[in-house]
């Protein structure tokens, strides 16, 4: 038989999903979030307080785990990829199946780990929904980046180094540079550049979307409340989602392009 199976992506996803689920890492990952969230509740946290404490973990840990685990995973899946590529499977379908097979269990582990304690203790509401959404989006974005890097760099040590570097740049250094820029150019109106700089970094974008829930009182204090007005508006929400979408699609597209041409 020579027909291609249109459900190849679904099959690969199904098997990779169960493979990833059975590897202890995703379970540990989910348990970590569960333990952390539950612990924050146990230590007298209210819904909002717990969410605030989770915010930093989400913004730091999810990108790190996504980019490192994603790259490691694809490097380790090399043999499986070769096995699959000897089957009547399109490379694009395989890539999509692999991506979904990792990113969805990771995102699911996070959602369950954080969500279950909130179900038990109550609270959360729209802010919890936004936190979960940002966490899921960051997972998708950083696994996509990891896949691109893992396909791009044949040498896994180099690939992992770049992955960690990328995380460091996005999660820590970028904000330092922005802060330096703000200080250096304090004489100029920086509202629009600040919004643009935020859109350029998915971690910052996720953070600002959460600020709208936690710090709206302070954001309203900014001259003309420009930040709140932009990110809180339909236009701003659309632009933010588009930016996050690009952060997902561009690395995934670059990775896919390379994956299609790659020699195994």
């Amino acid at each position: 038989m020579t027909t291609l199976i249109p459900t190849a992506t679904a099959r690969v996803f199904q098997y990779e999903f169960s493979d990833v689920l059975r590897s202890r890492w995703v379970t540990l990952y989910a348990l970590f979030f569960f333990g952390l969230t539950e612990g924050l509740f146990q230590f007298g946290g209210t819904g909002t307080g717990v969410l605030l404490s989770l915010l930093n973990v989400v913004l730091i840990l999810i990108p790190l785990v996504g980019v490192v685990f994603g790259a490691l995973y694809l490097y380790q899946a090399r043999e499986f990829v070769e096995l699959m590529l000897a089957q009547p499977v399109r490379r694009g379908e395989l890539f999509a199946g692999l991506y979904a097979g990792l990113s969805l269990p990771l995102a699911g582990g996070f959602v369950l780990g954080v969500g279950v304690p909130f179900l038990l203790h109550g609270g959360g509401g729209a802010t919890l929904a936004m936190l979960l959404a940002v966490g899921v989006l960051l997972t998708l974005v950083f696994v996509a980046l990891a896949f691109w890097l893992a396909v791009r760099f044949e040498d896994r040590v180099r690939g992992l180094a770049v992955a960690v570097g990328l995380w460091l740049a996005g999660a820590v250094l970028y904000d330092g540079l922005v802060l330096a820029l703000v200080a250096a150019l304090s004489a100029y109106p920086l509202e629009r550049p600040m919004i643009a700089l935020t859109l350029l970094n998915p971690i910052d974008l996720g953070r600002v979307l959460l600020l709208l829930h936690f710090d709206v009182s302070a954001l309203m204090g900014y001259t003309g409340a420009v930040f709140e007005r932009f990110f809180g508006s339909t236009l701003g929400a659309g632009v933010s989602l588009t930016a996050l979408g690009l952060w997902l699609i561009v690395p995934l597209g670059l990775g896919l392009r390379r994956f299609r041409r790659k020699d195994f």
């Binding site: 038989m1 020579t2 027909t3 291609l4 098997y15 990779e16 169960s18 493979d19 059975r22 590897s23 380790q76 899946a77 090399r78 043999e79 499986f80 070769e82 096995l83 590529l85 000897a86 089957q87 009547p88 499977v89 399109r90 490379r91």
Partner: peptide
């Protein structure tokens, strides 16, 4: 090149490595 012809090809690679947590039956 899209892989359709591979339905007619069986391949046994030099080093047999598989997704670690799956069983043979599952593969």
């Amino acid at each position: 090149p899209d892989g359709a012809d591979r339905a007619r090809i069986g391949y046994m690679p030099q080093a047999a490595r598989f997704p670690e947590n799956l069983t043979g039956r599952e593969v």
